[in-house]
Design a binder for these strands. Structure first.
Lengths: 237, 237
DNA sequence: CAGTTTAATTATTAATGTGACAATTAATTT
DNA sequence: AAATTAATTGTCACATTAATAATTAAACTG
């Protein structure tokens, strides 16, 4: 027997929007697309899409992310729901924002061409549509918060990376210069890193050893707090 | 000019559900209602409701909370969106879950009678409808996480409380016995508490001094990390 | 009412962790 | 071969933490 539907209730559109972070070796960046349809055609926007009738919201977010980057099995976390009645002037649309952390070298260029996508430095973001600015701010905040206690920033690095490389990432995320000696000791003490035989030789004379993440320990220790950043000055949440 | 609506997209119901926490002096509790309408009439459920066309989701959550407890200006935080296609078998409904922290002595009894509401100990929860179990688990997890770094548990206490009272709350939330000497020193060192002249004399011979929360410092220091609980063993997030 | 009991509060201390800074090392460049 | 650069390792004073002990204030008991 088919149940009755709820009567006298207001139905609306449900969308997901993805805040996609990447790290180019120097700065944290965000992938935005040039919106290809009305309203607000031609303006910068987060990649998003409507949730279809037979998928759940997490699946929708993963689908949207794949659509733009070609990537699957990506760190993707629900951020928050945004539901002001007129956030999209066209029609009532509630959007669930997700943030994704990807290796900037891996995404598929041709796909991002289709959407006229570009990476923007977080300090030089263009104006974006609707409430996307607010979503981005919240995502930045959440990333800082999360990364202060969980080794989540590794998701932004390639498989092989150096400790100075990692430190640059932390410094950019927290906008704070860290002592390299202490950073190195602290990060190594977690036991999360596996030293490689080879070194990376660009931009340094001595060269810095490559490391890989110990995936097993990463899973295991993800929730035990690292507390890398002494006073992260996290604003909210 | 009225913009065109988005065509060929699926519209759905949007609901909010509130996970309402209280503390009875011994245990952390949850306020559930006996569902008064079909489907699943008569079963235990979180208090929830549909988002109307002219309110945002936060407002909807506050409205639902007031509807059941009579309370406004309550600590209310968005938890997550739940959107499995068939979570409500009646019809596709996405729900945004919120968790609320209230002073258990303050809510209005007559309202909760109307909804046949009851407080349940977290260890003895009845079976609940839909995915409400999952929502509750996530809320518990988030509360533990949050309270490990922010003085949020004060929201569950009355205006005047004692340090042992507060300690009992922490012990129940983390299911962990804490040293009273260290707890007292640590909590006082935050400067968040204002000692009162009078003592609470029940259940103790010496009596414990009452304290009040310094609201200004509470606002100010909410985001500076307290780290009360050494290894909170937080499972996720 | 003196002594005992209970629980709150304060004090002590060893161990650990942190951060500032200095020293050493391994390469490359001049 | 010496100078230079940046990675890596080392040192140490200081702060924080947690385990434990000592003290204190009130109430109960005979």
């Amino acid at each position: 027997m088919q149940l009755k539907r709820y009567t006298h209730q207001n139905r609306m559109l449900l969308a997901v929007d993805c805040i996609i972070f990447g790290f180019d070796g120097t700065h944290l960046k965000l992938l935005l697309i040039k919106r290809g349809f009305e309203p607000q055609k031609g303006r910068w926007s987060l990649m998003g899409g409507f949730v279809t009738s037979e998928e759940n919201i997490n699946q929708a977010a993963a689908r949207i992310l794949k659509q733009l980057t070609g990537l699957t099995d990506i760190y993707l976390e629900q951020l928050a729901g945004f539901g002001d009645p007129h956030r999209d002037p066209t029609e009532r649309t509630v959007s669930i924002a997700y943030f994704a952390l990807i290796d900037i070298n891996k995404y598929e260029e041709q796909l991002s061409h289709e959407y006229s996508a570009e990476w923007f430095s977080l300090k030089k973001l263009p104006s974006v549509i609707f409430d996307h600015k607010e979503m981005i701010e919240m995502a930045k905040e959440k990333l800082r918060y999360k990364a202060a206690f969980h080794p989540v920033l590794f998701e932004l690095l390639p498989e092989k990376f150096t400790i100075p490389h990692l430190q640059t990432l932390y410094e950019d995320v927290y906008n704070k210069v860290l002592d390299k000696g202490n950073f190195s000791r602290k990060i190594l003490s977690t036991g999360l890193l596996v030293k490689q035989k080879d070194k990376e030789k660009n931009g340094s004379k001595k060269g810095a050893f490559y490391y890989k993440l110990d995936k097993r320990k990463y899973q295991l220790k993800f929730n035990s707090f690292l507390n890398f950043i002494p006073n992260p000055e996290v604003q909210s949440k």
